[in-house]
Structure formats: structure tokens, C-alpha cells
Design a protein around this nucleic acid. Sequence first.
DNA 1: TAGATTGTTAATCGATTAACAATC
DNA 2: TAGATTGTTAATCGATTAACAATC
Lengths: 211, 211
Amino acid sequence: MPNSKEISLAVIRRLPRYYRFLDELKQQNIYKTSSKELSEKIGLTASQIRQDLNCFGGFGQQGYGYNVDELYDEIGKILGLDQQTEAILIGAGNLGRAVTNHMDFVNRGFKLTGIFDQNPELVGQSIKGIEIMNTSQLGAFFYNNKPKVAILCIPKTVAPAISQSLIDLGVKGFWNFSHCDIVSTNSNIVVENVHLSDSLMTLSYKVSQLK
Amino acid sequence: MPNSKEISLAVIRRLPRYYRFLDELKQQNIYKTSSKELSEKIGLTASQIRQDLNCFGGFGQQGYGYNVDELYDEIGKILGLDQQTEAILIGAGNLGRAVTNHMDFVNRGFKLTGIFDQNPELVGQSIKGIEIMNTSQLGAFFYNNKPKVAILCIPKTVAPAISQSLIDLGVKGFWNFSHCDIVSTNSNIVVENVHLSDSLMTLSYKVSQLK
DNA sequence: TAGATTGTTAATCGATTAACAATC
DNA sequence: TAGATTGTTAATCGATTAACAATC
């Protein structure tokens, strides 16, 4: 199981994809699959899928394949989706609101418990039943709650300072939408960067290579 | 220059990062840098940075380093940011609106010229000065405009059908926020997937590995 | 049993890093 | 010139693919 060896990030990033396709099979009431079938659906080699899964243990049965429900649950457990890590949103602007409304946090391993913004006009409004608080209330909030993760939807200019103060308050992970890289001086902090701007530039490159 | 060999996607994905850090240097009025200095700022090896840049030509000067402004412009050109590819948004829900308001399309190689949604309540409203049109008007719009790229902020259920009809209308690239993989039967289509859900699950894994 | 498909080892491929000659 | 730093080749490392024995 996890923590045993050291699984490469490349493997981990493929797991949500497997999870997604297994969910589709579930919805079609297909209860059995094989690395070959998955490879055709997902567009990877069967060999890679077997290698990936075997990082975590033997979920299949020789001569048979994989049980869809079982494999789905196992991958969910590996990804920690059976837990709900407490998370807060910092920055309730356009992007923060959209992310909050859009994501199914509970089924992705998180529970959103607080939303914060510096703009007094937003404070008091609610998103998904959670009232937006003033950033100044962060200290008090952490006194009563222990959110482990912060979702950063704040301008790049304030991101370094705010992320540092969140670390000081005890945050251990960031889902970072700011156009900057959060660097952890402390190594016990995990970061998942979503660089939309970088992604758009990559698309620009791909488009420019067409024809 | 581009198109010559075959540049790996791993290299391309680092270019926006270089671009970002060079922009910072520009803003600090620093006009000269070196692979060593960049490597410390960005957190990659100097060797890799030199390798990456040399995929596209020698932008540096031995014994001196790189001219910040020049390198910034060159990377911008490689990424095609000196062009503005016409793009449309499909789906003006929470996420679509946020992306539209949030992104600086012009400086990322694109020009947003149309927004479409199926919801009649949204049609007629404007985002960033662009009026939301009904999806039924897509044909007419393509008759007058030739958008090359579509930004998909639509539910996964309708994504396959809509992306196919957009391909039929002449779209050559997708920035896909739907929770599904756009697969191009036709190989002349480029796709950049933004799987927020996958990213969140990856964070869940990282958090679960802490301590 | 025969057929199928896994789990796993070995081979290949590609990407990163190291080293150094070229040269500003 | 001496020092610095690139451009580039060679060495290393890691990830993907192929092959096959194990076994259901």
C-alpha cells in the first residue's frame, strides 16, 4: 500500500484518469474489465496500466482481469478519496466562486469549511451555503478549526505573503491557482499548482504547430 | 526554429514557466541573467534550462549569459504569443465566466470573439463586452468568423457531441475544462485538457502521504 | 485441461544531468 | 589574457514497453 516504496508522480497523475474511466464502466453496469480493454479506452498501453496498478498491489486476477467496482474503490482509497480533508478557499473572486461551485469536493477527498476574502463587499455573501469571511478572521477560524488545505484564488502579488501566513497557521497543502509557484521552505508542505495561464500558452504553441 | 525537429511536450511545458520568471526579472529592470541564476529561481538544473533553450536555437552568449528582454521575446514567439488566434467560449456557466474574466487572452496568444450557451437566460448577457449567443447560432457565427479554437466549459455529458460538431465547423484546437478526454479521430486537432478534478485528486493523494 | 490475462522481470527508449570544449 | 558561461556531446537515470512465466 501507499508510503511503502516511492511512487512516481507520473503514476499518481494517471490514477484519476483510471478512476474516471472505471466510473464510466460502472455506470454502464460493466463489472469486469482487463488491462487490454482499459488501454484501448484510455489510450495507454496495457503494460503501463498493469505496471501502475502493481505499484499498489495486485488488484487483478490472472486469466480473468479486474473487477470494476473493486478496482474503482481501491484507486479511490489510494487517492485518499475515502477521507475528507478540511479545506478553505482564500479569494472569493470570479475564479474562487467558480471553483467552489464547480467542484465536487466531497467525492474528491475534501470538505470545504471556510471561505475568505479581503473585499468587504463580498464578506457576508454565501457560496454553497458557506458564508464568506474577512481574511482578518483567519486567526480566529484556525483557533476553532484545523483546515489542512488552502485553495488559493488570489492575485500573484499577494500569494507569497498569504501562503506563508497560512503555513504559519498550520496549513499543510495548497491547491494553487495563483500565477506563481508556491515554494515551500518547509518540506512538509504539498502543493498542487493549477497554472491556467501556462496551459493556455501551451495550447497556443500546439495551435501554432498545426498544419 | 519550431517545426524543425520534434520538441518534446515536457520541454514546451517548461517554457511558460521560464516566460513567467523572465517577466519578473524584466519588472525588476534586470537585463541580464544566466542559466545558473534562472535555475536557482525556478528550481531546475542549469543544464536542463540550457538544453531546453537550445532546442530552439542559441539565445545566449558564451561567457555572458542571456539578455532578459531578448529571451523573453524569443520564448513568446516560440509559444506563438505574438499571434492572436481567434477563440470562442462554449458554456457560460460559473466556470466559463470565471475563465473569461480571469484570463489575459491577448497576451497568451488568443482573441476571444464569441461566447455561446444553451441556457436562454444567459443569452443576451455580456462578459467582458462580448454578448452571449445561443448555441444554435454557432453555424451562422462560423459563416462570418473562423474561430480556430474552442474553450469548452460544458458538462461532460454533452462534451463529445459538441466537440465533434465544432470540429465539423472547422475548429482545430480545444482548451477543454470538461471532465472527459477529448479524443480527436482526426489527427489535425490539438487539445489541451485542464482536468481540475484530476488535479484535486492528485492533491488528495499528496496530502494523504504527509507525515 | 486450454485459454486468458495477470504480475513481474528484462529490454528499450527518452529525458535529465554531467562534463567540457568553444568562445565571448 | 583570464574568467565566465554558453552550446553540445556523452553518461546516467528513470519511465515505458515488451516478454513471459505464473496461475486463475
